[in-house]
């Protein structure tokens, strides 16, 4: 039986009268990559931020392995240090160098001694291919480089799960590749990942599971081959067709 890392049960989220998430349930197994696709504004990003409680859901429960995230007694900071998040706009700490960006969580949250923290950070930075930029500042880097640092920052905390919120949507086209490569390698090395993205090529090649969301509900869910080739839902087919034309990859 595969180990379930993330269990999401009946999540609802409203902003005033607007109902953004209307009962989302799914799970992600250890070592697997799940990609969430769907039109913009359907609550995909909100779903991710509900998982690490940056926007707490109004209803529903979430478990990280055996711990219930949504339980009022749970210390959310401890949970968050086990879940990594990569943002669309990178959100690197602008006043800190690349190395300090990656190291900060280890020093402040996990209280790891400086030498050890530096070693761990260097390892992750090398992993994403930026070992030579440790003293640079975020504003001096390209978008792709910044996003890779952002991934290293998430990796440094040794998370059980990494959430990716449209990681390549804010990048120039030629820089998308370097980020997707890093993500692909992560998946190959067994990281559990939940990715919101429009990159169909990546989804087809790397995802173990694809979830198609629209208007706050899950329309269809399944393995990539099934979704891309034999999808049952006409809406899914329609979306995939349009999106694949736009973003490349084969329909």
């Amino acid at each position: 039986m595969p180990n379930v890392i993330l269990q999401v049960e009946d999540i609802h989220k409203n902003y005033g009268k607007l109902s953004v998430l209307k009962g989302i349930s799914f799970q992600v197994n250890q070592g697997e990559t799940t990609v969430i696709i769907g039109p913009s504004g359907t609550g995909k990003s909100t779903l991710l931020t509900c998982i690490n409680q940056l926007t707490p859901p109004d209803q529903g429960r979430i478990w990280l392995e055996k711990k219930e995230i949504t339980h009022p007694d749970t210390d959310i900071n401890i949970i968050r240090s086990s879940i990594g998040m990569v943002f669309q706009h990178f959100n690197l700490f602008t006043h800190l160098s690349v190395l300090d960006n990656v190291r900060l969580g280890l020093l402040v949250v996990k209280k790891i001694p400086r030498n050890e923290a530096t070693e761990m950070s260097m390892e992750k930075l090398n992993q994403v291919g930026l070992g030579d930029k440790i003293n640079a500042y975020p504003a001096e880097l390209s978008g792709g480089q910044q996003q890779r640092v952002s991934i290293a920052r998430a990796l440094a905390m040794n998370p059980k799960l990494i959430l990716f919120d449209e990681p390549t949507s804010a990048l120039d086209p030629e820089l998308i590749g370097e980020v997707l490569n890093v993500m692909t390698k992560l998946a190959e090395n067994g990281m559990t990942m939940l990715v919101v993205s429009h990159e169909m090529g990546f989804a087809r090649a790397v995802a173990n599971d694809i979830i198609f969301m629209e208007k706050g509900v899950i329309v269809e869910e399944g393995k990539p081959d099934v979704m891309f080739q034999h999808s049952e839902n006409p809406r899914t087919q329609e979306f995939l067709h349009k999106i694949t034309e736009l973003y490349g990859g084969k329909a």
Binding site: R80, S81, T94, G105, V108, M157
Partner: peptide, 13 residues
């Protein structure tokens, strides 16, 4: 607010 979100997302209070 992205900065605050990033900080909280790695577990800082």
């Amino acid at each position: 607010e992205g900065q605050m979100r990033a900080a909280r997302s790695i577990g800082m209070n």
